[in-house]
């Protein structure tokens, strides 16, 4: 069972660890982000789901104080970011999408540098660096230069640098881009542990399965606007009870595709390859015989797969495109 499946309604009674309201940013005529708002309670993981260019990074840049919004407010643990940026930023751990570290320094030196910026006293910082290195599993490589690390190890230091000051909210912008499966697992395990310990989490990704695994709630952002927000169940219910049905065809695929679109119960249809199609269909698993019959005479169905509604289907339904488009 995923984190999104187990979640219930958002916690709203405590002061949110991170809340934003009416965030907007324009560049000339281009709307990068418009009227974005959400709240994350302490110990809650919140996902921001959207394709590249949807406005995720712009939103995060405004949340961490790198970009001044045209309008809207950001509250970090109740502190207004615009009014008291130093105090608000001290509560945030920000993990940028790129490896924002110094390659000529060792892992430990990188952590020490960023820890000092958060004003940690020398001894406490040294102790925290050891704890963080242990948490991210890099104690044995701490004193070698970052330039010699693998991509996954760099990613882990990238996250570690945001944890030194024990932030109230951790903001992760696409933290697993380009990492090997082993490092990805280590990162996700670590993030889940932090949430269990009570840290609030904002997690952006275009890997649907990561959001489903880590986050209790998620928002789908597209063209700078949040178009859906809720638990997994709430989001998936937006596409109704439709299943995703994938078919591999042999024969006149074009004619067969047209016939499949016309079958009653098929909500959406898309060509996914030269001989494959993907359908969103009400009660798709029960519709399978009708679909096979429909293409008879034009093509033969050589393989089928029925997938229950998920966030991918929801995203497709809401935006008309896949996350990796």
């Amino acid at each position: 069972m995923t984190a999104l499946e187990t979640a219930s309604a958002p916690a709203t009674t405590a002061t949110p660890a991170l809340a934003c309201r009416g965030l907007s940013k324009r560049y000339g005529d281009v709307v990068a982000v418009e009227d974005v708002g959400f709240a994350i309670a302490p110990g809650q993981a919140y996902g921001l789901l959207g394709p590249n260019g949807a406005g995720k990074t712009t939103t995060i840049s405004m949340l961490v104080g790198l970009l001044r919004p045209d309008s809207g407010t950001v509250l970090v643990g109740g502190t207004d970011l615009a009014a008291d940026p130093t105090r608000a930023k001290a509560k945030i751990g920000y993990v940028p999408q790129e490896i924002a570290l110094y390659p000529e320094l060792t892992g430990r030196e990188n952590l020490r540098f960023f820890g000092r910026l958060f004003g940690l006293p020398r001894r406490r910082l040294a102790a925290r660096i050891d704890e963080v290195l242990d948490l991210i599993g890099l104690t044995d490589r701490a004193d070698t230069k970052l330039g010699t690390y693998s991509g996954g190890m760099k990613r882990r230091i990238n996250i570690g640098a945001a944890l030194l000051h024990r932030p109230e909210v951790l903001i992760l912008d696409e933290p697993t881009v380009g990492v090997d499966p082993q490092s990805r697992k280590a990162i996700l395990d670590g993030v889940e542990r932090l949430v269990e310990e009570g840290m609030a989490l904002l997690y952006t990704s275009h890997y649907m399965e990561e959001i489903e695994r880590v986050c209790e709630r998620a928002a789908i952002i597209d063209h700078g606007r949040i178009i859906a927000d809720g638990t997994r169940r709430e989001l998936v219910s937006l596409v109704g009870t439709a299943d995703k049905v994938e078919l591999v065809l042999d024969g006149d695929v074009e004619t067969a595709f047209a016939k499949l679109r016309a079958v009653e119960g098929v909500v959406e249809a898309a060509r996914t390859g030269a001989s494959s199609v993907r359908l969103i269909a009400e009660g798709g698993r029960y519709l399978l015989p009708a679909l096979i019959t429909a293409v008879d005479g034009s093509a033969t169905v050589t393989a089928t797969q029925v997938i229950e509604p998920d966030l991918e289907a929801t995203f497709l339904h809401l935006t008309g495109s896949t996350l990796r488009d």
Binding site: S61, V64, G65, L66, P85, T86, R87, K89, A90, I92, Y94, P96, E98, I99, A100, L101, Y102, F114, L117, F118, G119, A161
Partner: peptide, 14 residues
């Protein structure tokens, strides 16, 4: 370009 400037700016410093 490295991204470290943004990271410094995201810290509680002026």
């Amino acid at each position: 370009k490295l991204g470290t400037l943004d990271r410094i700016r995201a810290a509680p410093v002026a």
